Computed example of a mutant assay.
Amino acid sequence: MDAPHIARRLALALQRHAGLHGSVEDLRRLTGGATKTTWSFDLLTVDGRRPMILQQMPTMTASASASPGLAAPKLDAAEDARVMIAARAHGVPAPAVLAVLDVHDGLERGYVTERVEGETLGRKLVSDPAYAGARRAMAAQAGTILAAIHSMPVAELPFLQRLSPARELEVYAGLLARTGFSHPALEYAVQWVRKNLPVDWPDALVHSDFRTGNLIVGTEGIRCVLDWEIARVGDPMQDLGVLCMRTWRFGGAGEAGGFGAREDLYAAYERASGRPVDPLRVRFWEAFSNLKWAIGCVRRGLSVRADGSPASLELCAVGRRMEEPLWDFFQLIEA
């Protein structure tokens, strides 16, 4: 479907779902892939120009809840939108959802949100002098935002899967087994996680991908939290562990996202949530998340087309990066 055709359908969808009348202008595709296709555009109305984002999710990537145990949880477009709507209602800076698309719109499943201006590129955020002030604030901001996410009432979102640490290991070990790829370091990491699973944790809504690269940042700090499609109910310490992974520091010195101090993240979280951070559980999830990313690299690297040829040179290159999170995993468990 070409851009002019999408623009016409998009204008009709916004009129139908949100009562917004106008023409779609400057429609530009930002990213594309197996999970989402993202478009930036402006809706020109009698009241002025409104910046927006369209995200499309092909039907084939609908929620993994339809086939539990076969894949990691992934929300469909309507569920993703509902989580963001609930998050904003709870004071979390999530994208403002304007319309949720359906089959009658002819645009695949997806949703439209307001567009938030800012930077998402990790290397720029952790090194550019223009964001020095933001870096001083972001660890505390992240702790406060995560505390708000973890206090969201999950009863309002009954479609979310609950993943205990043991269940999450079962899912990812199963994904690795289905690749047929065998590696001693991966096998050791799986066994280490199995032996060190937490036995007690409070259930909470977990973003599960809260990290540099999924945050829109301005010079004052974090403006918006993106990519909610793998949210689940689980151990809240998981989010702190993911944010502290070396992979998502993009070369920055700060242990929290490459931009700040782990201590500042923890202190802000405790102030905002009224609950103590468990450093050992955070480190467990940091290690486990490195294993999950290593498995993700393997799966991407082994991706093939219908004829059996490698899916792309880019995915092959991602596959070779398996060793980086594995190195980080072993550094963590030795420490």
Rank of each mutant, 00 (worst) to 15 (best):
M1T: 07
A7S: 08
R8H: 11
L12Y: 11
A13T: 01
A13L: 10
Q15G: 14
R16M: 07
G19E: 13
L20K: 11
D26P: 00
L30R: 13
T31V: 09
T31Y: 10
G32C: 05
G32V: 09
V46F: 10
I53C: 11
M57Q: 15
T61D: 09
T61L: 03
A71K: 07
A71N: 15
P73R: 08
D76V: 00
I85E: 14
A89D: 15
H90S: 15
H90K: 03
P93W: 11
A94D: 09
A96M: 12
A96P: 02
V97K: 01
V100C: 03
V103R: 15
V103P: 11
D105V: 04
G106W: 06
G106H: 10
G106K: 02
Y111W: 15
V112Q: 07
V112L: 05
E117C: 01
L121G: 04
K124E: 13
L125T: 01
S127D: 11
D128E: 13
A130D: 14
A132W: 01
G133D: 15
R135Y: 06
Q141P: 04
Q141F: 04
T144A: 15
A147P: 11
A147N: 08
A147E: 08
I149S: 01
H150A: 04
M152H: 03
P153R: 06
L157R: 08
F159I: 03
L160H: 11
E170W: 10
V171G: 03
A173I: 04
T179P: 09
G180F: 10
S182H: 14
P184C: 06
L186S: 02
E187Y: 00
Q191W: 05
W192P: 09
V193K: 02
L197R: 04
L197K: 06
V199D: 13
D200C: 10
D200H: 13
W201A: 09
L205V: 04
R211Y: 06
G218V: 00
T219S: 14
I222N: 05
R223D: 11
V225G: 02
L226V: 01
L226W: 07
D227L: 07
I230C: 01
A231M: 03
R232Q: 14
V233Y: 02
G234H: 05
P236I: 02
Q238I: 00
Q238L: 14
D239C: 11
M245G: 08
W248I: 01
R249Y: 07
A253F: 04
G254S: 06
E263Y: 06
L265I: 00
Y266P: 00
Y269K: 02
A272V: 02
A272W: 08
A272Y: 06
G274R: 03
R275V: 01
R281D: 10
K292R: 15
W293A: 02
R299A: 04
R300G: 09
R300I: 00
L302V: 05
S303R: 13
V304N: 00
V304I: 12
A306W: 10
G308A: 09
L313W: 10
E314Y: 14
V318Y: 12
G319S: 03
E324Y: 11
E324S: 01
F329I: 04
